[in-house]
Design a protein around this nucleic acid. Structure first.
Lengths: 325, 325
DNA sequence: CTTGATTGCTTAATCGTTAAAGCAAGAGGG
DNA sequence: CCCTCTTGCTTTAACGATTAAGCAATCAAG
């Protein structure tokens, strides 16, 4: 490994000058700068990040903590984060908080021990990370109004609810997966808020809710809105078992536009998160906080996008109480 | 941040003794060791990884390069890797090689610049990474016989083919996604090798292959074996459009046991990779290579597991040329 | 009682980089 | 012509750990 010192003795100048030339700081004549640059290139010089980190206290590494790395959104977040971080010469160190708040603290501590310059946290359901000695950006939490970047889950709920309303449904079921999840509660809140009071709405949760939802269809509901594509797929399976067809007898919607959603039959109407935008904003913010000193700021919200596919259609009132038009 | 120096002056001993006591090296009396440990704890001492890295040349960081972080297997690999790495006090820095061999080299270089102690690489289709200055373990490549850990893709193909054979199918279609992928070729090779010569076999590839496969069903094939659950889902959708039922008229199999495979209708018979085992072995090997000096060794292969679900059943010969039993 | 080994600690150098401070030479102003 | 400022470079001291070498005291053995 060739160091600054070797370039210095090779060229007969001091190490400080090499450092200054290469980093563009201090005062070095333009001519010498270019000479040093080319010589460094020739020798294949690569700065030691460890030495730089020791001296400056900055590692150029961001920590990414997720509640569960198998989260279906994780790959997309990780990828965009990784690409955006690259552009700013930052690295991304991952940590899995394995579903528990304790493990989340552990993961944060490990990352801090490694000297990360900032943290991007997708928090455990229902937890808010403690104050940290480095800048933090929280992803996808509506709860914490500070330093967060989140999809507009409530807005997304509104989009899908209005879609269902627009195409003529008047009795709907909302099905959530996990009541502890702020995100899912926000989505549902967005849905219910968008529906006028004369619309029949039932809200169910969890596995038991799947059956209840199907039962509601048999007693007249014409649409099921879920808070996740995975739940929608589950409902789809249950509906198939009970011979109820989608979208002829019931319209079905998901959330998140997962990999299979466009492929399943019928292709699922869903709401997509703008993951790229969220991750980009997160990196923008965290790097602004690291370098400049951007103060704490209010949470940002990134709009969601309605993706209409074949699983929703105008209601067919054949099975419902009202006569068909 | 409290350093070794502060503990030293606080306790009236030298920094060397502190270092020795805390790392368990050198010669320090047992009594002093425990006193130092407790005092360090009290002061909330955390060793500076940067300083240690600078002095020892070891960062305790592993680089993970994947061709595409949105790869559906990535989350599970990342999670297991992360958990196993934690146990050994290693961190994981991720990099996305974005589908191109050039970007892969770039990603490797970036990780090396950051001083990773080892690399775990899921290579681009068809590429073999150059020799590296640090230990490398390659995941999921059958091609490179050295320093790799891979699912036994061919074996997995054999498992599913024998299953199809055992339950009575005699004319089958094999459908692959991407001919460039070594993995998919291995899977198909495993399938064809397991089938006796008197079995009718057609192999198709890509999107065009989906339609061809469906056509083959209409001319008598009773099973479609795909090299990916995603492709299977695609086929399922196409079959639904043409009113062919699974598994009554045709059995269908996937590969990889993805999130939706147990939820879709009918639940998909597939072959699961033992991702945990693969990732664990990868970390075992890489850390052995880093610390001890385990030499290059032959590639290891981890068995796959057949997961039989509802998408496969004994053939119903109603639509085929032969009379039903 | 002397010698040599062992134990328990300290001294000091070092990893590669940055950055404050210093210094000599040339430029510009009065 | 003298003084100050600027430019371009060097000197030097860190950053926080590790580690080889050194040294004094204790101990065992002959």
């Amino acid at each position: 490994m060739v160091s600054i010192k070797q370039i210095a003795s090779d060229m007969g100048v001091s190490t400080a000058t090499i450092s200054n030339a290469l980093t563009g700081k201090g005062r070095v004549s333009q001519e010498l700068v270019t000479r040093i640059q080319t010589r460094a290139e020739e020798l294949g010089y690569r700065p030691s990040i460890a030495a730089r980190a020791l001296k400056t206290g900055q590692t150029g590494i961001l920590g990414l903590v997720m509640p569960d790395l198998t989260n279906p959104l994780f790959p997309r977040i990780a990828q965009t984060l990784s690409i955006q971080a690259d552009k700013r010469k930052l690295g991304i160190l991952i940590a899995d908080s394995r579903g528990s708040a304790d493990e989340q603290s552990e993961a944060l501590r490990r990352l801090l021990d490694r000297g990360v310059d900032g943290l991007i946290v997708v928090p455990q359901k229902g937890t808010t990370p403690d104050p940290m000695p480095v800048p933090v950006v929280v992803l996808n939490t509506a709860s914490d109004p500070w330093n967060s970047v989140s999809a507009d889950h409530a807005g997304g709920g509104g989009l899908v609810a209005r879609h269902i309303l627009d195409i003529g449904h008047r009795k709907v079921v909302i099905l959530g997966g996990d009541q502890v999840s702020e995100v899912q509660r926000d989505r549902i809140a967005g849905m219910t808020d968008a529906l006028p009071s004369d619309i029949g709405v039932d809200v169910f949760w969890g596995d038991a809710g799947v059956e209840k939802s199907v039962a509601m269809v048999q007693s007249g509901a014409t649409a099921i809105m879920t808070t996740s594509d995975l739940i929608a797929l589950q409902v789809r399976t249950e509906l198939m078992r009970t011979q109820i067809s989608v979208p002829d007898q019931v319209s079905l919607t998901g959330f998140d536009d997962m990999s299979f959603s466009s492929i399943m039959h019928p292709a699922l109407t869903t709401v997509a998160q703008n993951v790229d935008e969220i991750a980009s904003r997160a990196i923008d913010i965290i790097s602004a906080k690291i370098s400049g000193n951007m103060p704490d700021h209010e949470g940002e919200t990134v709009p969601m996008r309605l993706v209409v596919r074949q699983s929703t259609s105008i209601p067919n009132h054949f099975f419902s109480r009202r006569p068909s038009r």
